[in-house]
Amino acid sequence: MRQAPDDISQEIVNNPLYPYFKDCIGMIDETHVDVMVPIKLVARFRGRKGVTQNVLAACTPNKLFTYVLASWEGSANDYRILQDALSRPQPHRLRVYDGKYYLCDARYPTMLGSISPYRGVRYHLKEYSGKTPKNRRELFNLRHSSLRSKIESAFGTLKNRFKILCAKSHYPFSIQVDIVLACTVLHNFIIAVDPSDELLNDDEFNEDIDDEVAFENDTNLVDFTQNQTQREQIESRNEWMTLRDDIAWAMWVDYYDKYNHGVTTET
């Protein structure tokens, strides 16, 4: 087993996608948990999956939750919730580390601290079944999806273990929020004391994949992690998109050096 440097997680080093995602500190995604709310609030919490709370979380490749933000309405836009997570005061804020990033799906933009897949390019693992990548963007999306699927598996494991998250609760809403947080804490405790736990190592509990709304060409998105002018925000996003391009090219060169004798022709 390769030994991880001090600033890189052991899970990333041991992953076959190392060193391409060596600066990745985790994956970001959201999940929906059924809730019971007063009738006057039902419309606010009703979304595509019924009356739910939308829960944003970040986790490591070994399914350890490192950040959880519960209580948002099920109808809330995923990117709006991410903005909230980035703008909250410490210690309730999603931390963005210098030079490090999270992997997220196309519902979130590529910007400071997060890298999403290329839009308009096949992404989910099932789309690549029996097919090989035709260009660097497809290869990047395939490997991005492979690593990011760990958080889908983490959500599936969480709900399979704690059935209370899959049933309507009659507790006050504030307690329903606390139940979500308590279940993630217990989930992390199980990882710490029994990393060989059967449920933790069963990836068949992946959540269903939703249709994604991509923000790739929206240059008006605001980065709440810094006080920046609109021009600085655009320049920052372009830097991170360039980093994604560099990672994609490095993957492609190595891929074809191994399988096509160094020929890097794309289709």
Rank of each mutant, 00 (worst) to 15 (best):
D194V: 01
F162H: 11
S146A: 15
D210Q: 10
N77R: 12
D245A: 14
E73R: 12
D105F: 00
E239T: 06
D218A: 05
D246W: 09
F65V: 01
L186S: 08
A106Q: 07
H170S: 12
L199R: 09
N227V: 09
T132Y: 02
D84R: 09
A4C: 09
E204C: 01
D84L: 08
H124G: 10
Q83P: 07
D203T: 01
G26F: 02
S145C: 08
V33F: 08
F140V: 05
G74K: 08
D223H: 06
K100G: 14
D178P: 05
C24W: 08
V68H: 05
D202T: 09
W240S: 11
Y18P: 02
E127G: 11
G130Q: 04
F205Q: 02
T132E: 12
T184L: 10
Y255L: 13
R119I: 09
P5L: 14
R231K: 01
A214D: 04
F155C: 07
L125P: 01
A248S: 15
N238C: 07
G156V: 01
R143M: 13
E239Q: 11
R122Y: 12
G156Q: 03
Q233L: 03
T219R: 06
I25A: 04
E207L: 13
I115R: 07
L41F: 12
L243F: 12
Q83H: 05
Y171L: 14
E207I: 01
D29F: 02
Y102A: 00
N217H: 08
K22M: 12
L64S: 10
H261N: 15
N135D: 15
M241Y: 01
C183G: 04
E11A: 14
N227M: 13
R161A: 00
M251L: 13
E204M: 02
I8K: 13
H32W: 06
D208W: 01
I151A: 04
